[in-house]
Design a protein around this nucleic acid. Structure first.
Lengths: 210, 210
DNA sequence: CTTGATTATTGGAGAAACTCCAATTATCAT
DNA sequence: ATGATAATTGGAGTTTCTCCAATAATCAAG
């Protein structure tokens, strides 16, 4: 499956596929925003794109995937790989996020619409975990590559999981703030909390005023 | 929806419902283990319990819920509520887990079977996030109650999310070890890592030999 | 530009998970 | 015993998704 970011569309075939995939995603999102996710059938999407329902399933294995399908993952992955191998993971993570900040700003509206569905539609919300795990696997692999550690190592997995779910919570917060402000900043804040040692001891007691 | 742990079954009606719900769950799990989750249809489950498919949906909103449905949540919730209000959350969490350790030991085989499905079947794995969020909401609410903080407070949410996802990772690890050893111990280990500040800086560098 | 090989599109048949509803049947409270 | 209440059931229908075979578009090579 090639991505939205294709180096150079080689043949007519590839270019057409590309366009079709984008059309499906665009029309689907338009309909979802107009009428809601559950209320939109695959027939309707297919009709809007002027393809058959069968063809829809040639491009996306399920209705959910139209929303889930993400062009950022491979970018994030490759940026992460480019970081110096001796750099601490949390720093790499922050740097890469900053590098991607521009993209996030540019696509703000699209990302926001996607996120709204993501967290708002039960079927999609359920699949969030898979996204978290994808990220976890990616980063665990990176750690394994850099260090002598096993990617399956318990400590590695917990550490990465904690980072990723903190980032996920940052996205949630960003959404709660209706996409106002910087997403990257929120992730950084969340990571700060985690790195500070997740003040589990203090958080139960009343917040110190001021 | 009453739970598996019902104080005293009052009428015949309630008792029968109870029994039916348990039968469905038992027969479903038996079939899932025998033939796999996807391969088992609701018709088959209904036939095994000697009810109609319609009735199945009176008890569980979906096939997934048969596996997901959990009697432990309310127990955990009430135990958590009983902890002294000035006790740090992480301690409360650990104590409650220890209190529940006996139950986990007793139901080890059942929990293991459930967990295998949980992490193994894509449809169920996807729904893990909802379980995580349920726990997050529960605990955030508790924090809000105890402290002056808002349950929606970003810091609160991140902290709780991190704890819960660490626990989830512990469950995953427990499953990878085939249910050998103590689940509670693994959760404690995961929490230790989180509290130690999630050594994101160190984990990227090669592990010190020994 | 033609031809033969790939590959994409399509329609049809069908399974499975649900939803909705109205008829029936079982329990309950009196 | 009886009327109210709640559970069970069957049937009809929708939607997502699978499988497959026919058709149509693209491609690579001569």
């Amino acid at each position: 499956m090639p991505n939205t970011i294709t180096p150079l569309a080689q043949g007519l075939r590839e270019r057409k596929k590309q366009k079709t995939r984008e059309s499906i995603q665009r029309e689907a999102m338009r309909l979802f925003e107009m009428q809601g996710y559950e209320e939109t059938t695959i027939e309707q999407i297919a009709a809007a794109v002027e393809i058959s329902p069968s063809t829809f399933f040639n491009y996306f294995p399920s209705k959910e995937d139209v929303v889930l399908y993400d062009a950022y993952d491979p970018v994030l992955a490759s940026l992460l790989m480019e970081r110096p191998a001796d750099e601490p993971l949390s720093i790499s993570f922050r740097r890469v996020l900053e590098e991607m900040g521009g993209i996030f700003e540019r696509d703000r509206e699209i990302i926001l619409a996607r996120a709204r569905l993501w967290f708002g539609v039960p079927a999609l919300r359920a699949r969030l975990w898979e996204e978290v795990e994808k990220a976890q696997v990616l980063m665990s692999g990176l750690i394994a590559q850099r260090s002598g550690r096993d990617a399956e190592d318990f400590e590695t997995r917990v550490t990465v999981m904690v980072m990723v779910s903190a980032a996920m919570e940052a996205m949630h917060e960003w959404l709660r703030r209706d996409g106002q402000g910087s997403f990257v900043d929120l992730v950084n804040q969340a990571l700060d909390m985690v790195e500070a040692g997740a003040r589990l001891d203090e958080i139960a007691s009343p917040k110190h005023t001021g």
